[in-house]
Computed example of a mutant assay.
Amino acid sequence: MSCGNLSVPYPFGIGPAKCYVPGFKLTCDTSHRPPRLMLGRLQVVDISLRKNTIRVINIDRVSRFDDFIRSFNGISFGIGPGEAVPYSLSTHNELILMGCNVQAVLSNTGKNREILSGCSSFCPTNKNVTYDTAAASSMDDKEYCYGMGCCQAHISTSRDGMPSELWVDWIDPNMYSVRLLPLSYVFIAAEGWFNKSWVSAQLPESSWTNGLGPRLKVPTILDWEILQLQPTSSQQLANVSIPQRKTQYIKCPGICRSKNSLCKPMIRGYSCQCSEGYDGNAYLIDGCKGLHACTSLIQAVNLLCRLLLILYMLNLINL
């Protein structure tokens, strides 16, 4: 199964429910050339079975924040609430905030309420008592943000799936009344993508959609996991005991369908990996293909080389 130039590995799928595990439905947008693989409103550009990640392009998710607004919640991924979907923000993302006298907090309001990230951005004021973004940019690194004019922060692991809140507020509420603050922007991007000079150059010239922000194509990495064990046939869902979850790998009937696979406990569910010496798709019957033939050949060659080296050192043969 494929869409455009991307293959779609199970447990993901397109079409009827039998083609994917619940929560892993994707769509193929054929209105573009080449067609785009979509997860809700997010464009999928890579799926990794080995890393349990999916890389998406987040369009129209750069939120604008100006001094007409006291504070706002700017989070929206378009794939459903956190606890109901098998996705969570990877720790290989960053929270990016650009602006002056502003702070952002990314959090989750599930059963394990937690703050996942946060940072604050400041700017010096000029003689007219207005915030000077140009001065802040000249004081800071051209590539990264350390709190002057913009800031960036790592994102912690979430125990409840996708974050549900991204609150942005002014640090000094008195500045709100005089309306001297420049525009601020907040978004979440894959670690290493953000370049302050490049993004700053894009923001003023970008078009706006629904007042949300510029149309930057921001990459984001999502972790995924199977939230429950799937039935093997007509049987009830298989259960894994708590003591079993403490081991690194366990047997999970109904998920890891290849006989040469193991099940790994994740934060909220499980994932499948091929056993050592095998590679492929552990979610399919016979999906893990053996590498033992190649491994054995390499080991035999290495052993022969060592034997020849020993014989040479003993002056028993000439090489």
Rank of each mutant, 00 (worst) to 15 (best):
S2M: 08
C3M: 09
P11R: 09
G15V: 13
F24L: 10
L26V: 12
L26S: 09
T30I: 09
P34E: 11
R36C: 03
R36I: 04
G40R: 12
G40D: 12
N52Q: 04
V56S: 03
N58D: 14
S63R: 15
R70F: 09
S71Y: 10
N73C: 10
N73G: 10
F77R: 01
L89G: 06
H92R: 13
N93M: 13
M98K: 11
G99Y: 11
V102W: 06
V105S: 15
V105C: 15
I115T: 15
L116R: 14
L116K: 11
S117A: 14
G118Y: 12
S120M: 03
S121N: 06
Y131K: 09
A136E: 05
S138D: 03
M139F: 12
D140Y: 02
D140G: 10
K142V: 08
E143G: 04
Y144D: 03
Y146Q: 05
G147H: 07
M148Q: 13
M148K: 12
G149L: 11
C151S: 05
G161L: 05
M162A: 00
W167V: 14
D169N: 07
W170P: 00
P173K: 09
R179L: 07
P182L: 11
L183D: 14
Y185H: 14
I188C: 06
V199A: 03
A201V: 00
Q202M: 11
L203G: 12
S207M: 04
W208K: 06
G211K: 06
L216I: 15
K217G: 09
K217N: 12
L222T: 01
D223Q: 01
L229P: 00
P231Y: 13
S233T: 10
V240R: 03
S241L: 00
K251A: 03
C252Q: 02
R257M: 05
I267S: 04
Y270V: 02
Y278R: 07
G280F: 09
G287Y: 07
C288F: 07
K289D: 02
G290E: 05
L297C: 14
Q299C: 15
A300H: 12
A300V: 13
L309G: 04
I310N: 08
L316D: 00
L316S: 00
I317D: 01
N318T: 04
